[in-house]
Nucleic acid binder design. Structure first.
Lengths: 158, 158
DNA sequence: CGCTTAATGATAATGGTTTTCATTATCAAG
DNA sequence: CTTGATAATGAAAACCATTATCATTAAGCG
């Protein structure tokens, strides 16, 4: 049980050290914020939340930490088309991997993992075929569906 | 002969008028530029190309025209992660619908339509299931694979 | 405890995209 | 063919998310 600090997060410090990074208060605070939510936070969202508890942590540090976390593959960075990047922990509450439904009207994001079974098959098949065909080494994918969410569908006829 | 029914093939002017827009020289030039290429041009790319023939067309107009075209669903706007949006005609040279391979090293974009047959079936299935499950009206999707292209795969070990 | 160096944060800079606003051009009507 | 309403244009400035700069602070090893 590597800890020795009171906060007992399962090995964040070790993971940072393993990548040659230091584990600091700001980084801890940012990770805790990400762990606490299921939303898709922007850098500023995170900054504001962190700021309530640690008013001296700057937006710059948020950006830098997010960059480090992304590079360590601990968070994923998304663009939903609203002009700012959004982030979420990759390993968070059983949501290991999921895709998004993006409402083009209200910008609501719906995560889903439910129907991935069929998709996974398709993806594996497709990725394999693409890799061979183009000699392209696929390491990641992005799948998003755009449309109108339940609410906006109703409001459309108004 | 530009017909008035709006269904005619080229009929750019008619399509614009049908949406309550005027068909101007700058718009024509921008569309021609998009028609002439199979690349994924940024606003500035388009501006520079258009600029050689019409030096007085400004970057602002390019942005505005792209917005109108996107709203008319005649072009698609993509974000490949290099900090600028990229555009392509939706109905261009048999490339009606395709997906992208994005090289995370050199930013090369590969279009593919080849294996979509299998994908289409599963996408339809998935979209139908998602629509029902979340009461979400899907109108579009984005599928991109990230990884290393042939060249960058080789260069990696250097 | 002290040292090396990564990390921080205030500030300024960057750069793609949008706004502003005065001017020009489109096109339906006369 | 003119005219007039108004959409479209373009130069410049504004915007705003993100990055770079740099002096200061603090993590973590010995």
């Amino acid at each position: 049980m590597p800890r020795g600090d009171g906060t007992g997060p399962p090995g964040w410090r070790g993971r940072f050290r393993g990548c040659g990074h230091r584990f600091t208060i700001p980084r801890q605070a940012i990770i805790e914020t990400l762990e606490k939510t299921s939303a898709h936070l922007s850098a500023e969202d995170i900054y504001l939340k962190v700021h309530t508890q640690y008013p001296n942590i700057g937006l710059t540090t948020v950006y830098r930490t997010l960059e480090v976390l992304a590079q360590m593959r601990l968070i994923s960075k998304f663009d939903f088309g609203d002009g700012r990047a959004r982030y979420e922990l990759t390993k968070n509450s059983k949501k290991e991997h999921h895709h998004h439904l993006v409402c083009t009207n209200c910008n609501r994001i719906i995560d889903y993992t439910d129907f991935i079974d069929e998709e996974v098959e398709l993806l594996n098949k497709t990725e394999k075929a693409l890799s061979k065909k183009f000699n392209f080494e696929i390491s990641n994918h992005l799948i998003q569906f755009y449309g109108l969410c339940e609410k906006c569908k109703k409001g459309e006829s108004v």
